[in-house]
Nucleic acid binder design. Structure first.
Lengths: 335, 335
DNA sequence: CTGTTAGCGCATTCAT
DNA sequence: ATGAATGCGCTAACAG
């Protein structure tokens, strides 16, 4: 920038003002022109770290997900990045690959980067110790002036984009019920994930309200992956062969469940057993058969998260509630 | 850090050495202990921008993709992030959403961030003007000491992780041929994308070598998306109803093609028409029917890319060649 | 092995 | 409206 200033025959301060001046454009037309010309000619590229140092804040926002290759997070990330672009923010993505400790580590890293904000997109967990450590790090981050936004519940005093996981669980179960299903099983994910708990809880409550409480043996737990869904679904239908419908707590698992039902057990979907997934990721409609599922506005969640972290800190924690919707396709049938 | 140094009763330099000292750990045991204790107690968090400024290099690498929600890029990103993690690098992802100009803009942004390196994961394009501008920006980036690695061809003097797009196109066509297909059509993506050109070219050559050159009317072009694949496949099979097999130039398009064939035209796959995709994205095996496709080692490409940017600049451009493999599943049948 | 010192590139007072 | 000066937090000689 020195060079640019010199080349334009102005002071360093003036060059700084026209090159990065935020709002109050208090530079004369003539000088402004000269500086811009000089910058152009010298191919000046501003130095973001230096700016961050001087301003004590940067234009990068962090996004911590479990797995970028998972379409659930892919959709959220796409939404967040689209919104970030409009604000000229850069997005730094960290993937924990579902190792709990990494979330904390990456939050620290983002704090070191002096990220302006971070979005915690992965599900919270029921591990009290980990949650406490994370809360402390979050507090530190906010004390440094950073913003933190969670997608999904993490704590009452955090800005959060709330997904209708409970309501969605209820929706799915009631949809199945209306189709005439009475023997409903649940292929669940890891029970320490809050997202899983909420979805399962929503299903449970709805079933109880319908007068048919969900028996414990009708729930089986697997990894939140395709393979996990396949294994869990096969196990559940083997142990409880009278089940006529399955709620699978995310679409990726549901894809596995569909494969397991068909290839491992030879059970026809939807004639022998109906299947409902959760999330409505992009490929859900292309599965075989097209997956009925609970749609969550994933991209919108990403956008909303960026929206929240743009708003001034605020006195009370902010919340955005996103609704779920049941989408019935070909993996469910009436009985 | 001042505080930490003072608290530990050492100089700033010593604190810096134990806190961020790279390798040559030339600090006494006792002092080291004291500094670490002080840092712990004061909850010291290092300031990455300041480090970047002082060192004139950072620990962030940029990854520019077309779309994070696309499973192709999701897989590449996952591989890159896994590798980056081992090197304690942070990954800044930028998505162009297929707007050509954005690639250049993001490269500039990453340059401003003083990213240590950037990975260009999206396909190059045949637009000469855009390519030239990009080349200039790349040169500038490298002149600043940054590394650039491309996934897919971008130019002969760039470090690149080369995907076997041509070979893959040939593989697909020969696979179909061996199944007895003689009337093969291609659902192509935007022809300005180099990736598309190479895949199509590979298919063309193979067909010519087989003595059955691909007629122009047997190729139809669509967006590199599900909707694009659907529309293009429907159009192709409507105009050329005698085609017995389709090569679709990526799996996302193939998902759309499958839907179009089934829902719009009522053509059975694979009995009436066989379909081969390209990429082998995670959901390919779950489509209806399970998609035969050309597998590309996507995650490995991401890993290889960060591997390349870790190696010292090198005299000659480096290349990593990744092979393709034909995976036959249920969307193809013999005639 | 440890401390002193001089920048890194930029934003901002504070003068003018 | 513009310029001069100071410091952001840290690293890297350099000197002991």
């Amino acid at each position: 920038m020195q060079q640019v200033a010199h080349h334009a025959g102005v002071s360093l301060a003036t060059a700084s003002r026209v090159l990065h001046g935020s709002g109050s454009r208090t530079v004369g037309e003539e000088l402004r022109r000269r500086v811009e010309a000089a910058a152009q000619e010298l191919r000046y590229v501003s130095n973001a770290p230096a700016q961050a140092l001087a301003r004590a804040t940067s234009s990068v926002v962090g996004l911590i997900v479990h797995d970028v290759a998972d379409p659930y997070f892919g959709a959220i990330a796409a939404g967040a990045m689209r919104a970030a672009r409009e604000q000229r923010l850069m997005v730094m993505i960290a993937a924990t690959f579902r190792e709990p400790g990494l979330e904390l580590e990456y939050l620290r890293g983002l704090r070191a980067q002096r990220a302006r904000a971070v979005i915690l997109a992965g599900s919270g967990t029921a591990d009290a110790a980990a949650t406490a450590e994370l809360a402390e790090e979050i507090a530190g981050f906010e004390a440094d002036g950073g913003r933190v936004v969670c997608i999904g519940e993490r704590g009452p005093d955090l800005d959060t984009v709330a997904m209708a996981n409970r309501a969605g669980g209820g929706l799915a179960v009631r949809g199945l019920w209306e189709l005439g299903h009475r023997r409903i099983g649940v292929v669940s994910g890891p029970s320490e994930l809050l997202t899983v708990r909420h979805r399962l809880d929503g299903a449970r409550r709805a079933l109880r309200a319908l007068g048919a409480p969900l028996p414990l043996r009708a729930v089986v737990e697997g990894d939140f992956t395709r393979a996990g869904g396949r294994a869990a679904a096969v196990r559940l239908m083997t142990e409880q062969p009278d089940l006529g419908a399955l709620l699978v707590l995310n679409d990726v698992m549901a894809a596995g469940a569909l494969a397991g039902l068909r290839d491992d057990l030879g059970l026809a979907v939807p004639t022998r057993v109906s299947v409902v997934g959760f999330d409505d990721v992009p490929f859900a409609a292309d599965l075989s058969p097209a997956l009925s599922t609970v749609r969550l506005p994933l991209e919108q969640a990403g956008e909303a998260a960026v929206g929240l972290l743009l708003e001034p800190p605020g006195d009370a924690p902010r919340r955005v509630e996103l609704a779920a919707e049941l989408v019935l396709r070909d993996s469910t049938a009436a009985v």
